[in-house]
Nucleic acid binder design. Structure first.
Lengths: 195, 195, 195, 195
DNA sequence: TTTTAATCGAGACGGTACGTCGGGTCTTCTG
DNA sequence: CAGAAGACCCGACGTACCGTCTCGATTAAAA
């Protein structure tokens, strides 16, 4: 009896997915400017209320849309070489963050977050902290493996690593290229590299 | 001499000043949300065109308004003790950045900058780079005084120091407090401290 | 036989009643503005479909609701004195038409009827014509009793009597008071009074 | 000296005219249903605010639009024969009231007036009362000419004459044809005709 | 001075988006 | 299988800003 209910499939789940996809499409095509709820609803051929029913705020919608593309790139496999692994992870992140679907949405979220502390908290909780966390795990592993000094708490170091890259990407006109990443890692290793 | 010059009829430059001040006042009172050009002109009892004649963009206006409060806090005097000096400078910056007149304007600029690369460049050129620069000068002086290793280019290090603080302030819910600043400086000294 | 229903009790009859009552309650409380099908269904804790299943149109629902209060006031008993009887009937009608439950519903029906000829026909058939009819019966009785000229068809006269009052009530800011009613009856008697 | 300033021409007077015309056009084409402010603005290629700037309410706009067509038909010239003159006037009014541009607008006004006492008052003041008034003047002239009894106040009679016709037109499915008008006038003459 | 040319306040204007509401239709699930 | 609950598309509501534009009135510099 192959019952079809293994996925409960709440009523509008499909539509929710569609709306998020439309948001990404729109972002890729018209960029940050075209990301109005009105435009999204229009493009999705959906009443505005159908959007508002799902997300109380544009920021909330954008965060979910972000999630949708975000999770796809988290399948990296550490090799054990800390420097190489961090380098790889950062390059991947930056590459994703720079290309069309993600970049406009991310910037839109940043913009929204400036006027809405709640959105700011959500942004950090769901994305920035995640990146910090995965970075922290990597360096902690390296620390246990003796590659880093054992007498320091690396939590803040992880924030510095990530924060520097986000700062450069979002707030400066400079690109986050290999030079920048290497410079950052050099400083990190100089500070915390074992003996 | 029936000239009723009690009303001196201020000319252009004065009015420009007045508009910037109104922008700051509005920001302090109603916050980011109230910073529309419409509201600013209304509050200043000025035609909208008078605003547009001076600044092509909201971002441009906000940047100038920012400048107005910004320059007031740059009168710090280094003592020679690197750690203490940086600490002092960062605490001052953050304190200014957190209090009413500046914070809403800064966030508004950040928001505008997301959709406008030119504004992003201007933001970096006029503010972020300035802070990086003054930081760089300080650490370079210390380097020459032998407090820091002589074999490194500190340009990027200065960016890391500033970037980390901006990242935390603008994009996370965490406060930029003394703990954070000290943590950051510790990492910096561990990496680049002499011998 | 524990059947408690001497009447066949069609399933939804009670609910239909309840909906009509809710409509009247809502009209009394929030007036014409609050008379949306949405609000009625909400107030009755009923799905909108349950309303649409019963009435194809808001006008239809309102007409039925109107009926509900209307029939309660038709228990007048003519005395034989034409002038007094008409006066009494008109005063009653107007009094009912002016007070909360009925007035907003009536006006809502008028409004609906403007855009919907079918509703207009129904309004006339079920209410206006009824009033004209009962007026006609009274004057015809008086005519047969010799109180009115025998050589005229009073059908149109009845329409004039009623129409004038409705006109004043619905389309002018003037109240339909005793003065108005007496003036109208005077004119009527002057035209058709016997000899 | 052909000075061009005989008309001061306030800024948007032309546009106001255009909007009223568009309202009438729309009414003629799509009828009562299409008379949303949104549709009017769209059709006139005008921002919604441009409409709201001129009229606080849909009712106000419709009343002005009504005025525009209304005044064109008031150029009748009484002949002195009361019965014929009233007949002519009523026929003209009804004819105007029945044809496309006017009928949908009038009904829309009636509908709006039901929920807005102010609109109701305005409707009466600007249109209904005008008709009553011109009717009153005609019958008063006839009264002075000895065609009508001298001992009666005809104010209310004028209301009855007009009210009956409006009642029939707006609230019943019956047409206001010559039969109806003649019946009404017969009753009137029977009541107030001289000797 | 007188004229000319900016500059100003005020705000109209066509747009676009906001967030809310109601109209009708169509589903889903419960009793 | 009827019914409550409400999702859904649609489109109007009235408000707010955007950036451009016109309007007179008020000044400044040029004639």
């Amino acid at each position: 009896m192959p019952n079809e209910s293994s996925a409960p499939r709440r009523r509008g789940a499909v539509r929710t997915e569609a709306l998020l996809q439309v948001t990404l499409d729109l972002a890729a095509e018209v960029g940050y400017a075209g990301l109005s709820i009105e435009a999204i609803a229009r493009r999705a051929e959906v009443g505005k209320h159908t959007v508002y029913r799902r997300w109380p705020t544009k920021a909330a919608l954008l965060l979910d849309a972000l999630q949708r593309v975000w999770t796809r790139d988290l399948d990296y496999r550490p090799t054990g070489d800390l420097h190489a692994d961090l380098r790889e992870q950062f390059l991947r992140s930056v590459s994703a963050l720079t290309s069309p679907p993600l970049d406009p949405v991310y910037r839109a979220v940043i913009a929204e977050a400036q006027s809405d502390p709640a959105a700011r908290a959500a942004l950090h909780e769901r994305f920035l902290r995640t990146v910090e966390q995965s970075t922290l795990e990597q360096v902690t592993r390296a620390q246990r493996a003796g590659q880093l000094r054992a007498d320091v708490d690396l939590t803040f170091a992880a924030e510095v690593l990530c924060g520097t890259l986000y700062y450069r990407h979002l707030l400066t006109p400079h690109p986050v290229d290999e030079t920048a990443i290497d410079g950052l890692l050099d400083m990190f290793m100089a500070a915390y590299g074992a003996s």
